[in-house]
Nucleic acid binder design. Structure first.
Lengths: 194, 194, 194, 194
DNA sequence: TATGAATGAGCCTTCATTCAT
DNA sequence: GATGAATGAAGGCTCATTCAT
């Protein structure tokens, strides 16, 4: 039922989407949209939530907590990547919309917390396995960077139908894991003057 | 003259900004805004371009082409985050708006291409210095990932007035360089089953 | 069954009342409201009629036709104001709503005609008792004036929960009867120049 | 400029009037209505005020404060009557609308105060000339009754194009003055049992 | 040239009213 | 006979955009 909303929001953006078009896309009439999902704002939040949840579930389903850290990251990345690639008009687009609209700051704080929780959870797990520990902020930043990089590659992939998603995931893993992996080992890069 | 536009777009977002407010902020009348800068859409693009150009110049000014690769990347990143941090109501906000609005997808593709080109250039330089060479596609992919990660962190930074740009640059460098750096050395990660 | 309608119309006004709320208040479903009472407009008219009839009955019950004229008018007025005072969320509120809505002008003309008829009847009775007679038009005009004044005071009363209906009736009687009474005695006021 | 608003509100009622129709009637476009007069609510209040002010001025202009009481009341009534009769779609209709809509309660309190001030001013003047005095509430009630009676006669007149306004005013004066006049002389009617 | 004034078009939202079960 | 679900139609309001001065 939210599918229509997700499609239209993705196609037109939050502001560009009209309730008329959403109703049309859903094959129902506008008042029904209001009856079921409330205000445009509420509808958007509902869409965002659903896509977010789906994505999280895809990742969680792929990256079992008892795997070794690199394996787990790899599977998580591949799942994330596969998900974002398969639902090109889903989570990442909505998320981008939400970031641009001050109205959704509140919701975003919540979602981000969940995202970070997942990615950071993996990293944290790995770190602890190595007997190391890192401040939460650090984890959040790395999570952000990884997500951003992944989204960017998803975009890249979207423009190249002939490219192989699996291969792209591998490339991402190369960048991510080799970097993060070293961080996990305590190897860090430091500014020249420091 | 674009300053007013940038200020208002940053304050209200692309859709929240009204041409009235922009004209007011600029101290001229609305028809003048149209005469000088055209449509709201064109005006936004103009603002985005100007801020983008300024940012690129800041980076180019910091990362001289004859420096060693890591040094160059580091300086570039530092300049980038420094810029983003110093103009919190400029580039990153506009960029975020643009990312959310399907209207500007075209413009963004172009801008990102320029950024990728720069980053890929750095990496290529570094590779050649090590006597290695990589398919252009590989370079592009890594560059995309780095740019994406950087954008994401810029976003993260824009939301946290208290965060330190320098530190953020270091974090990014850690993720990026340690990963990319190993890639440059020919160390790669491979999928378990592969 | 009309009770729910009366309550809701009184609480929200004709336009503020929604058929949903009325159905809820009645404890039945909306299609039933339509089946039993028809259109919102018809429903309102039905409510108005019922309250109007109740009011007329209250007056008729109090002002027996065989009483002396002043006594009869006084009792009628007292009954009227008593009724209005006792059902503050009934007749007068509905009547006020009806007066404001062009849709009900027709209904109102009819209802007022009935009221005028009653008042004019009283006056006529009184006149004949004094052996006097007045053109029907005159009677009608005076009756109209009295009814208008009374309506206005009913409105006034409806707004003031603390006001005493009995006292208001007395005030009305003072204005009405002293004037009308003199008219009945043949005393008239004439324009200065005439 | 407000004329169109007054006409449409009178014709359709507050809720029945659409901003579209008002704009049409005014011969301008809807955004202009909003630019000049604001919200529908504000527009209505503006109309109400203007008509109220005009009515008050008509009365004040006719009933000079230095005239004898009956003369003054007569002129005031004639003016009021003439005004209401001449602007059948003006003050009284708007006033009725306002009474029905809880939104305007505040405005009404103000207007009523002005109305009462004028009518009560006349009566008070007359009373003092006779060396008598009456509580303000009493004056308000009488003012209400007179206004209601007058409106009612105005309605009566409206339905009878062949009737003479001046004559109707005289009839009203008969009812009002003979009644009020006696009150002024200290003659009052009292309930039988009291 | 610069602007005050004007508008076409569209969007969110609501509600009286009716099918299909 | 009763209802949950559905909708056509409309209304208030805003805003990018352009004349006429």
């Amino acid at each position: 039922m939210l599918d229509a909303g997700v499609r239209v929001f993705s196609r037109r953006g939050y502001h560009g989407a009209s309730m008329d078009e959403i109703a049309d896309e859903a094959g129902i009439s506008k008042p029904m949209v209001y009856a079921y999902l409330g205000t445009k704002e509420e509808l958007f939040v509902a869409c965002l939530h659903r896509e977010g949840t789906r994505m999280m579930e895809a990742i969680a389903g792929a990256a079992a907590p008892d795997l070794p850290a690199d394996e787990r990251l790899w599977r998580g990345l591949r799942a994330f990547f596969g998900f974002v690639g398969a639902h090109r008009d889903g989570w990442s687009v909505l998320y981008r919309q939400a970031r641009a609209e001050p109205l959704f700051t509140g919701e975003l704080t919540v979602m981000r917390a969940r995202m970070v929780e997942v990615v950071a959870g993996m990293l944290d797990h790995a770190l602890r396995a190595e007997g190391r520990e890192v401040a939460e902020t650090e984890l959040e930043v790395v999570a952000y960077a990884l997500v951003g990089a992944t989204e960017s590659l998803a975009d890249w992939l979207a423009d190249r139908p002939e490219a192989d998603p699996e291969k792209t995931a591998t490339r991402m893993m190369n960048v991510a894991w080799l970097g993060a992996g070293q961080l996990l080992q305590g190897i860090t890069w430091r500014p020249p003057g420091g």
